[in-house]
Design a protein around this nucleic acid. Structure first.
Lengths: 233, 233
DNA sequence: TTCCCTGAGATTGCATTCATTTTTGGACTG
DNA sequence: CAGTCCAAAAATGAATGCAATCTCAGGGAA
């Protein structure tokens, strides 16, 4: 798959750009992933193919293809001859994921600051403003969704499609934890303040500063999530 | 430090949990990827399912599953109702790949320097010495293979399995270019000298220094590859 | 009781078959 | 001669069938 989709939605993915409707395969992968991200299919649970076939009204062939792809993406675990389980999310995976994401955030900061255009700035700033409005309203669903779009938007400014894809994959993995733990919203005010600093660095086009702020923001988010998952299984 | 599996081979991938044999699915994915990495299946070429079925002696069902996975990994392109083609390798993808890899190299440097054990050091150093021997013999096949193992070994020292996987995926993508262009071995001496510096920083356990040397090494490799692919289609 | 064995039912792995879509080759028309 | 149209052939997308493997309740022995 090349550098295609430009989606701004959270791991929702139900958008038909134009006439070309998503193939059944794409649809199955998206919907299954969505079910796992939002926790409808619980971490570690067995998922017999027959159940999923009934749920989606398809035969086993396309369903199994989707499962293989999701296994390659780390969302399900396939045990030979023993069926699939939703890939377990363990708290001790949070560290490695955020550590890797930190490296990408830094690269996003370095490149975005160097390559950002005025249109990019307007786009990101609009998201930033919406984010503030959602915070004022106390609409945490919107906030979460916009937060996702904000960071994805920044990644796209980097102009590196592979970076975007990789980054998005990590975000989706992290997303699963938001539904596993009781999300802690006490940090949103701080988080938004950090976004302010990020916007300043982006407008100033200062690579090292933007990179540092994104890394710091990532680290804080990681710490908050580690705290929230402290008493997880 | 029990990380992931320790494979030292180039993108050959013979995954077996234990003595057990690899599943047909794993085998197909590995062998197909190998064919594309080494260029037996040329970039951009159509690959009718029937041909591959004959080649591997399997029916279309498991083959199609493998193709979907490879598509998700970026090795093949699936065009709805129109079959699969080997994902084209374009010179202008080299920059983005190495840019991303650079970010990972940096993280590998930072973490490996902080976490390296004596055993790790011995292991990496042994590879380094073999690399030198291969260079002296002028055995470029061995050199290339050991070079891959050296960097993979370093990634494993990071202790971050997700980082290893992501890094390896990038290495495999890059590997494809080695068979597309006439590899330029005029750089090996310089490259080996850079490895020397990397070893020094690793032994000294100096994160910033190791990170910087790995990043620089990555950049040089990128430049060499850009040069070699200048007159590519 | 606890452990091991067993076999019927359920589930997976792969092959085969059916349904659509695309491609191809050539006859026809302007 | 070039271009268009159409039917046959080929390829893909998805469903079904069948063999192999696993699961698990139930029974027997220590």
């Amino acid at each position: 798959m090349a550098e295609t989709d430009v989606r701004d939605e959270p791991p929702d993915a139900e958008k038909e750009g134009r006439a070309g409707e998503a193939s059944l395969h794409e649809t199955l992968v998206s919907r299954l992933r969505q079910l796992m991200i939002e926790g409808t299919l619980e971490s570690g649970r067995r998922i017999p193919e027959a159940d999923l076939c009934r749920r989606f009204g398809v035969s086993r062939t396309p369903l199994r293809e989707a499962l293989k792809v999701l296994a390659a993406q780390g969302f399900v675990e396939l045990r030979p001859n023993r069926g699939a389980i939703v890939a377990p999310v363990y708290p001790d995976q949070i560290g490695p994921i955020f550590e890797l994401k930190g490296a990408l955030e830094r690269l996003i900061g370095l490149t975005a600051a160097a390559r950002v255009t005025q249109d990019d700035l307007d786009h990101i700033n609009a998201l930033h403003l919406e984010l503030g409005a959602a915070l004022d309203r106390g609409d945490m669903d919107d906030y979460t969704r916009l937060n996702y779009a904000f960071h994805k938007g920044l990644a796209q400014v980097s102009g590196n499609a592979l970076l975007c894809e990789t980054y998005d994959g990590l975000q989706q993995r992290i997303w699963r934890y938001r539904f596993v733990v009781n999300e802690d919203f006490s940090r949103v005010a701080d988080s938004f303040a950090e976004h302010d600093q990020i916007m300043i660095a982006l407008r100033a086009r200062t690579p090292l500063d933007l990179a540092a702020r994104l890394e710091a923001h990532n680290l804080k988010t990681c710490e908050a999530m580690l705290l929230a998952t402290r008493q997880m299984p």
